[in-house]
């Protein structure tokens, strides 16, 4: 198994140094993720909720439009009506919990860029048309939208922390775009 994992290469491995140099961006590679498509009222979905999230509240409550549930590392993101992205730590296998549901392992289909800190929102706003002001979008919010010219899922996990889920093939483009957008802010941190 260790041999197998050593054979992986993440879509942004080649940019890890440049991302780290900004001081507020990094790749979160190899997260497990599944796209689940079912009516949250179905019993199988209730069972899955219970299996994923401890406590009766979370188990019952698949996220509503524009929201994510979970406190990390496990989250369920609303992608559309009856459509969720379940995210977990790398290497987590959730197949058995999802048995009987249309759940597709898409762990390798996307990677995640995490932006943290006081400039994260401003950097995203250079390429994202949706309103990220705390009055409109805060911790626990998520949205499928465009960032620059890439389609992304945006998930705010904490006050100044955003995850950007991007398709693996677009990751190089989007990371380079974000690195360029971050230039002004990197200098501001330095000053």
């Amino acid at each position: 198994m260790a041999d197998l994992l050593a054979q992986r290469r993440s879509p942004l491995a080649h940019l890890a140094g440049e991302l780290a140099a900004t001081g507020f961006m990094r790749e979160l590679p190899y997260l497990s993720s599944y796209e689940v498509r079912a009516d949250p009222a179905e019993p199988a979905m209730a069972r899955l909720g219970a299996a994923l999230f401890a406590g009766p509240l979370l188990a019952a409550a698949w996220p509503t439009a524009g929201r994510a549930v979970g406190t990390g590392p496990r989250y369920a993101l609303w992608c559309g009506p009856g459509w969720y992205l379940v995210v977990d730590e790398p290497g987590t296998t959730l197949e058995s919990a999802m048995a009987g549901l249309p759940a597709v392992d898409v762990s390798a289909a996307r990677t995640v860029l995490e932006l943290t800190g006081p400039f994260a929102r401003d950097v995203l706003a250079h390429g994202c048309a949706i309103d990220l002001h705390p009055r409109a979008f805060g911790p626990g919010s998520c949205a499928q939208t465009h960032l620059a010219k890439a389609q992304v899922i945006l998930h705010q996990t904490a006050t100044a922390t955003y995850r950007v889920f991007v398709r693996a093939s677009y990751a190089d483009y989007l990371a380079r775009w974000l690195l360029d957008a971050a230039v002004e802010y990197v200098r501001r941190i330095d000053e």
């Binding site: 439009a65 992608c79 559309g80 459509w83 949205a143 499928q144 465009h146 389609q151």
Partner: peptide, 8 residues
């Protein structure tokens, strides 16, 4: 069709 969002 909200192709880049909820795809509904």
């Amino acid at each position: 069709f909200h192709s880049a969002g909820c795809r509904r």
